[in-house]
Amino acid sequence: MVDSKVNGSDDQNLYFLSSSRSKEPLSINIAMFEQPLLKLTSVDIVEATNNFCKANIIGDGGFGTVYKATLPGGKTVAVKKLSRAKAQGHREFIAEMETLGKVKHRNLVPLFGYCSYGEEKVLVYEYMVNGSLDQWLRNRTGTLDVLDWSKRYKIAVGAARGLAFLHHGFIPHIIHRDIKASNILLNEDFEPKVADFGLARLISACETHVSTEIAGTFGYIPPEYGQSWKSTTRGDVYSFGVILLELLTGKEPTGPDFKDIHGGNLVGWVFEKIKNGQAVDVLDLLILDADSKQTMLQTLQIAVICLSENPASRPIMLHVLKFLKGIKDE
């Protein structure tokens, strides 16, 4: 175990801490990770990403850019370089990493470590070999197989489990604020893992001014965020409802297909179809069959209550998870 005080010369180091059962020191400014101890300097990070080469980019979002990287020793990881404008405050960053580093769950992307040097803030995650749910549902390259309903259902349950843990598994609770298909990553067994959890809170902790930006991604933002910028767990539930619709329909949350629909999005289109008694017509024909139809319709019912306009009418994620698991138990 490294010394609990990191001196100035070590600030640029990335720490991977070994598992320890010893009592944590009261004052600590590095996270307690469960990986074997490794120290990587900023030079190692630059080399691992080939100087943050564009060819290594595997994701780009509101919080920063993600690179596929190979650490000294050959381990493949995902390195997220936080946007400079949103990564202020070294002290706050370190404090928040302490919390996020302790969050362990089978349906959350493991955070291996972090690096803070100069104005740069870098996070290192486990690399997910099957990429994001977004990539599989869009299949823009035409090279991926169609996800059948059993895989999509597995992804729905696992993502719900991970989100329920963030909301209810420990204190302080974490509101994700940016649940979307590109933030649900898939391992080699298509077990889903929620990514970017805690980053919204991390950014808030590092900002010295009150942000007036609406948190989230267009198409996933709950309607109440138009009146208030306050994020809640029920906002995450709404965004998860959109994920369920994507899994059921195979369609994107927004797009030209919905330009003449109330709301101009997937949610509006689905609600209009249901209102007209055409619920079955929203289901993805690529995977719809006699075996999947009933469970898909039941999942659609769960999505609808997650998407209630009134936040108080939405279930909590623990209940969403229970509902989803209950489909298979019947």
Rank of each mutant, 00 (worst) to 15 (best):
Y238M: 08
L26W: 04
E34K: 10
V109E: 02
E252L: 15
V280G: 03
A159Y: 00
D329W: 09
S204E: 14
G235D: 04
S150P: 00
M317H: 04
A95E: 14
P110L: 15
I94V: 13
H176P: 02
E24H: 07
A156Q: 02
I179D: 03
N56G: 02
T217A: 11
H262C: 07
F271I: 07
N51Y: 08
T217Y: 12
N107T: 05
R161I: 04
P256Y: 09
L285A: 12
D178R: 14
D10L: 15
N56F: 04
S9E: 14
E330G: 15
H319N: 12
V237H: 03
R138L: 12
V242E: 00
L38A: 03
A55H: 06
S116D: 08
V103P: 00
T141C: 07
V270F: 05
L321G: 02
A78G: 01
T143G: 00
Y153R: 15
Y220K: 12
Q227M: 14
L137V: 09
N13Q: 13
V146L: 14
D134S: 13
F271G: 00
A78N: 01
Y225K: 05
Q227H: 13
V43A: 09
G255V: 12
E126S: 10
F112N: 04
L137A: 05
V66G: 00
I305Q: 09
Q227K: 14
A205G: 06
V282M: 07
P315W: 13
Q294Y: 14
E126W: 04
S308W: 06
I179C: 08
L244E: 03
V237L: 10
P110E: 11
L288Q: 07
D257N: 12
V237N: 04
T143Q: 14
K86G: 06
L100Q: 06
S132I: 01
A312D: 06
S150K: 11
S204I: 12
G268W: 10
S132H: 02
D178A: 13
F197M: 11
S182D: 02
E224R: 11
K86L: 15
L247T: 02
V43C: 06
D196I: 11
F93K: 10
D60R: 14
H105I: 07
Y225H: 08
